[in-house]
Design a protein around this nucleic acid. Structure first.
Length: 488
RNA sequence: CGGGGUGUGGCGCAGUCCGGUUAGCGUACCGCGUUUGGGACGCGGGGGCCGCAGGUUCGAAUCCUGCCACCCCGACCA
């Protein structure tokens, strides 16, 4: 009996939810729009987090932690920023409950009203820049390169597991620099860190680019983004890095003395990725049989299934294999459950996306070999026990690159170049994906295209060559193509 | 906030229109046995204030009123 995951073709969003639930990554909680991340899902997130954390540290950053609560007045200091977030803030107005004087239960104590309401952070620029004011006096105090791992709350109207939840986990880097150039360099560097991570670890190809003005982060002068393509042909913004100019320095009065002893405002960046990456991971590689994880992110890289069931002899062989794998830095698990049969276990481990499965049975052991099945292609082969560890190491690398190559191929098949509005609409209708088209740079064209097709400018790609063309809507001249897509 | 839908053992559902014994089915769970190289089978068992609060009635999962929650689609957004 199958575990009934909806197929992608029949109902894509149901398929997505089914994978998350059946693979026990997460589930809806008692709180609207907020999810419970289950141990297996959290283990994947920990791998994402740990690797990113290493990369942040390699690029000179340190971790710190700032408060969950932000005084209401802070948020309004930067005009564009408050404009962007005001509509989705959770607000703390009281600090005490009391027994309901009129009956059952407890009620908010009206006496315990806060003088100034506190906002549950939707992002931390304001509370952090308020601290930076005290920390930065001289050019010698710069740069400040801080990251924090935290939860934030954005009271979204419509939520989806991992992709958009009211509360989510993320990291947010907040850096302060003496010059414009240095800040821009930082923002670009972190975009590249994200892109490298996405491609090398998540096996998810991304387009590097900058956002159009209307898609920019609230308070940024420039937003650098990485954009990935999901299997339903929709784009997903997977990470952003913002050049904030001096907006927050001015809002929070953060000045430093330069080498000539002149006062200047500090230049800023901020950058973040969230548990949304989990959604990206799922939708990039998984299939109708369940989750597919790239080996570098998988919490368990190899699972060993005794056939037909655990026995002293098989347990001993498995123990030895696992010891060798551990020494080689490969994570493994032995499925010594005695209740379920192998067919059930195979399906279960495929559902969980474990990259490699070893079938350990007496028939093969007599031939000094094991059966090895890879999750990405479902292919099985027999590998001699003698060089099992090195074979598996090679196989895991091959799976990692195969997943990346498949995703690249999918993206190429779903990338189009169009020159007329008719083509644009028909391409979006037929196969979706990324559409490269000329744009005159006007918000009017963006708006018009969005209204007509629901597609938005995902980014102005960094590697776009100069090329003469005309805007799809206005017919005005354009120097380069930008990337359009329907997006999450 | 607009439109649609759903709340019944852990999960998935039937029953509700047309009120009537101890609320049922599948699955999961526990026990015993037989099985075991791709999602096993038999027998036995435990688990429900039918979303919440009122009301109608001899009697409510079912009818009425109010409330709450969640999901899906849209606008907003990482």
């Amino acid at each position: 009996m199958a575990k009934s995951i909806a197929s992608r073709a029949e109902n894509y969003s149901q398929w997505y939810v089914d994978i998350i639930k059946k693979a026990k990554l997460a589930e809806h909680s008692a709180v609207r729009g907020s999810m419970v991340i289950r141990p297996y899902g959290f283990a994947i997130w920990e791998n994402i987090r740990d690797q990113l954390d290493r990369m942040f540290k390699e690029t000179g950053h340190v971790n710190a932690y700032f408060p969950l609560f932000i005084p209401k007045s802070f948020l309004s200091k930067e005009a564009a920023h408050v404009e962007g977030f005001a509509k989705e803030c959770a607000v703390v107005t009281h600090y005490r409950l009391m027994n309901n004087p009129d009956g059952e239960g407890i009620v908010v104590d009206p006496e315990a009203k806060l003088e100034e309401e506190l906002i549950v952070r939707p992002t931390s620029e304001t509370i952090i820049w308020n601290s930076y004011r005290d920390w930065i006096k001289s050019y010698r105090d710069l740069p400040i390169l801080i990251n924090q791992w935290a939860n934030v709350v954005r009271w979204e109207m419509r939520t989806r597991l991992f992709l958009r939840t009211a509360e989510f986990l993320w990291q947010e880097g907040h850096t302060a620099h003496a010059t414009r150039e240095e800040a821009i360099e930082e923002a670009e560097r972190m975009q590249e860190v994200y892109a490298t991570f996405a491609e090398q670890y998540m096996a998810m190809p991304v387009i590097r680019g900058t956002k159009s003005e209307s898609e920019r982060f609230a308070g940024a002068l420039d937003t650098y983004t990485i954009e990935a393509l999901m299997q339903d042909g929709k784009a997903l913004q997977a990470g952003t890095s913002h050049f904030l100019g001096q907006n927050f320095a001015k809002a929070f009065d953060v000045k430093f003395s330069n080498e000539e002893n002149q006062e200047e405002y500090v230049w800023a960046t901020s950058w973040g990725v969230s548990t949304r990456l989990m959604g990206a991971l799922i939708m990039t590689h998984s299939d109708d049989d369940g989750l597919v994880l790239p080996p570098r992110i998988a919490p368990i890289q190899v699972v060993i299934v005794p056939i037909p069931k655990p026995s002293e002899e098989l347990d001993e062989v498995a123990r030895q294999i696992m010891q060798d794998l551990k020494a080689a830095g490969i994570t493994s698990q032995y499925d010594n459950d005695a209740k379920n049969r192998v067919g059930f276990k195979f399906a279960e481990h495929e559902l969980r996306g474990i990259p490699v499965r070893i079938g350990l049975g007496m028939r093969d052991l007599e031939n000094n070999q094991v059966e090895v099945a890879r999750r990405d292609t479902k292919e099985k082969s027999f590998i001699p026990l003698d060089n099992l560890t090195s074979s598996l190491r090679t196989l895991l690398e091959e799976i990692q690159s195969n997943l990346f190559n498949k995703a690249v191929q999918f993206r190429e098949e779903h990338t189009s170049r169009v020159d007329t509005m008719e083509e644009f609409e028909s391409v979006l209708e037929d196969k979706g994906g990324f559409v490269y088209a000329h744009w005159d740079g006007s918000p009017e064209t963006e708006e018009e295209i969005k209204n007509r097709t629901k597609a938005t400018i995902r980014c102005i790609p960094l590697d776009a060559p100069e090329e003469e063309g005309v805007d799809l809507v206005s017919g005005k001249p354009s120097k380069r193509r930008v990337v359009f897509a329907k997006a999450y």
